[in-house]
Each structure stands twice: as C-alpha cells, then as structure tokens.
Design a protein around this nucleic acid. Structure first.
Lengths: 219, 219
DNA sequence: GATTTCATTTTGATTAGTCAAAGTCTCTTC
DNA sequence: GAAGAGACTTTGACTAATCAAAATGAAATC
C-alpha cells in the first residue's frame, strides 16, 4: 500500500503533467506544489522511482510510469468523488471542500468508494466541473477550452475553474462564474490583455488574461 | 492536532477503561489491543502524559485526564457516526464496516462530521447497537446487561454485541442475534456454564457463557 | 527470606518523511 | 569562454512511531 504521502506526490505529478505536452514535470514545481523543501522532493522522487511509479532523469524532470499514472488517476477519482459527495449529499459549499477531500481521499477503501460512486449516481463531473476518472482510469470526454481561446459572440457553458484557491473561487462566485452557467465573450483584445464577457443578462465586465485562462468552457 | 496514532491510543484506553471500575488500564492491555510491542506502548504513553491526555503511574496503569476523555469520546463519536453512515447510506454490511471506519474517523473534519450527523438524522445508536456520544461527549442513557446476567422468562431486545470480530458477528447473524431482535432466555444453568435462549419463534438453542457475556440486551 | 515468574520499562536500532544549508550543474549573459 | 544566477542534489540532523532484546521490579511460591 502506498502511504498518503506517496499518493499526494503522485497526484501532484499527474495534475502538473496534464498541463505539459511532454508529461515531464520539474522538481521545483513538485516541491512548490506540495509545499516541501526542494531537497525533500528530490529524495522522495527517488523513492517513487524505486517503487517504479515514476521515471526520473536527474536535473531534467519526472514522468509517471503506467503504474504511477494509474495510481494518480485513482487518487483523482477518489478526490473528485469525495468532493461531489460533500457538496451533493452533505450540502457543503463548493469553495471549501478541497481541503476536506484532501484528507478523506486517503482513508477511503476501494469498496466504500464504489458504493459512494453508485450512491451518487456515477457522476461524470465534480462540483468544480472537473471530470471524474472512471474506475479504469479514463476521463470522461471533454471538449473545453479556456475563455482566452474563445472567439466572441457565441454562448458557452462554464465547465471548470482550474484555480481552486478559495480566493479565486470566491471571486468567481461573486461574478456568477460557476460551472453550469452560460456566458458569452462579448469582446476580446489580446493586445490590452483583456476579455470582456457577459454572464446571463448582467452588465458585461472585463477579465485579465490570467483569470480568463483559468476558466474553462464548452462551446 | 493529535496524530492518528495518538487518537487510536486514546480511543483504546477509553474503551478499555469503560470496562473497569477504576478506569485504570494496564500497559499490557493497551499493547495487545493495539497490536504493538509492550515497549512501544510504554513510550507512547509517556508522550500522552506529556500532552496531558493521560495520567500514568509506572508499573500501575494509565487513566485518562478530562482532556483525554474528551478526545476519546470524540473519536468514539466519529467512529460510530461513520459506521452508521456506511450501513445506513451506503448499504454496507454491518459485519465488515469496523475497519473502514477505523481509517475514516481520523480523516473527517469537525464540520463534515456535523453535517454527516445531521444528514443521518442525529442517530443515537450505531449499527452494532453502541450508543453514539453527543457532541459534548455524553452517551445516550443505556440500561443494558449481558445475557448471562439475565433472569429467564422475560422478553429482551438485543442492543449490542461487544465482540466485533467478523467471526463472532457472522456467528451471531446466523443465529439471528442482531441488534433490535427480541430474544428470551428460556433456561440458565450456571454450573454447566450455559444459557438457553429462543430467538423469535425458532427452536431454542444453547450458548456458552463466554458468548452470552458478549451479547448485551435491554429489558 | 530467597527464588521464580511475568509484566513492564529501558535501550539501541530502524524507517518514513521532513528541513536547512552546503555543494553541484547548466544555461545565460556578457 | 568565464562568471553568475538559478535550479537541483547532497548531506547531516531531526521527529514520530515502531521493534527486539536486555534490564528491572513486584508479586507469588517455596
């Protein structure tokens, strides 16, 4: 059995690698992501290599093996199912469940997880709009892009916010930018680095490119 | 925050002390109960003393302080609420949930626990018939004795099985000895060390005193 | 009272995970 | 191509939890 710590490293490497073409992740990203000293990450990665969960080239980076990817997907599944449960069943607020799930995901057995999945009606997306991997480690199909990539004058549905910090989520909620909501890009100006959009019938407002990038929509 | 290990020690000391008049628990019991070497228990107990969770007299025994008792009751509350959830909501079998709860109880936050309690309808007893402590650490009243102490010819309701090993629970279920069931002691013979009892309208059968002691009933 | 027994405590080692700080690469930049 | 900047790795040390085995104490037996 992998320890909770190992599970956390693998999960972090997986989510970081999803943003990278090559799937290769640098030591610094891992250390920063997990809030540990750089040296700690290095030595842990060597462990993970010994357990054949990652491949590691000194001073280059880390990639998941098939085994590591499987574990990572499993952790993502756990995390997202637990989050779904916390919101759907217990009625907690979707801005504050991340940390809770972070703990519970390590404590839940395969059997209980399956029951939970069934109880929740085998959901495909979690409350943030993230797809929940299936038991065999595959994501539900998703065709979504971030707001910065979107042509204007077309209605879109918010699917996912990639920044799950409480601050960002609160900001998003104030603006009505929650998964499921319909929005329209009314104007784009890449020079001034801004995207103007309208949520429902409210007055349009402008978003910087950093924020726009964090908001994924389906078209 | 106490570690999961500390929580386990305190919980074990609490349940052991509930069976003792003095509330004093020996080192051996703790070590055996937690399946650790005797020396491990000794050194851990010293830690707990430093944290003011227990009082400890060398070669005599351990008692919980008010603080320790509070933590222990909280752990019992967690454990039993989680068990209730696993059976009531997820439909798991009550003979196999103990170990699951053993993990989850450490991972669940106060807030989630409260929501869970509410969701379950603030239950007073868990699926084994054990009372669930309230948030302020008090047990629901209970007036129950074990089958060996019972006079015959009186209907009683099974409340609790004190041995939660899978083997015993399976045996109990085969015989219909589940919490909530009505039974009647038809004969007692303390010399031959046996209790005869009838479950519902089935044919009476005989139980040894060891087993009879493990079955608690209300009259 | 001396001896034996058995529970308990002490001791010394081990493992997982961590940090700070010192050392080493590699890639710019001039 | 030398120097410096940053990223990365190594080193040495620490904590929590554990074990096995040796030492100790207290109670029971002789």
């Amino acid at each position: 059995m992998p320890s909770a710590t190992v599970e956390n490293y693998i999960k972090k490497i997986l989510v970081l690698s999803l943003d990278t073409r090559e799937g290769q992740v640098g030591m610094g990203e891992i250390a920063k992501g997990l809030e540990v000293a750089a040296g700690t990450a290095t030595s842990m990665i060597k462990n993970l290599e010994r357990s054949k969960l990652v491949r590691y080239k000194s001073r280059q980076g880390v990639t998941l093996t098939a085994k590591g990817r499987k574990l990572g997907m499993d952790m993502l599944r756990r995390h997202r199912l637990v989050e779904t449960f916390l919101v759907e069943t217990l009625g907690l607020d979707w801005t504050e469940i991340h940390q809770e799930a972070e703990e519970l995901e390590h404590a839940i057995s395969e059997k209980v997880l399956d029951r939970l999945d069934k109880f929740l009606g085998r959901p495909e997306y979690d409350p943030h709009g993230d797809p929940i991997p299936t038991k065999d480690g595959k994501f539900a199909e998703r065709r979504i892009r971030n707001l910065l990539e979107c042509q204007s004058k077309q209605p879109r549905t918010i699917k996912l916010l990639t920044d799950q910090s409480t601050d960002f989520l609160n900001f998003a909620r104030r603006k009505g930018l929650v998964p499921g909501t319909s929005v329209e890009v009314t104007n784009r100006d890449l020079i001034s680095d801004a995207v103007e959009l309208r949520v429902g019938n409210k007055k349009p407002f402008t978003l910087g490119s950093k924020a726009a990038k964090k908001i994924l929509v389906s078209s």
